[in-house]
């Protein structure tokens, strides 16, 4: 989780990724940020995020992103 938080903060430093739970819904991150997050997850965790996972609920919090990474790594 710490590694993920570091990645997220590097992409958007002015967002409190540790506590925010509506990152997409409240427009704290936009589609460009999500794209950067997907690219970083691909590089750092060696996972491909499929189109079917591109849902606001999977990007609304660091925990949700972490859960998605875990799920994709287990597949």
């Amino acid at each position: 989780m710490d590694e993920l938080l570091e990645i997220l903060e590097d992409i958007k430093e002015d967002v409190d990724f540790e506590h925010e739970t509506a990152l997409v819904d409240d427009k704290l991150i936009d589609s460009l940020d999500v794209l950067q997050i997907i690219a970083a997850l691909n590089e750092e965790f060696d996972i491909q995020v499929p189109a079917s996972e591109i849902l606001p609920k999977n990007f609304n919090s660091a925990q949700a992103i972490y859960d998605m990474v875990q799920r994709l790594q287990d597949e």
Partner: peptide
């Protein structure tokens, strides 16, 4: 300038 992600919500 948009992508499919622009419509994710």
């Amino acid at each position: 300038g948009g992508t499919s992600l622009s419509y994710m919500s």
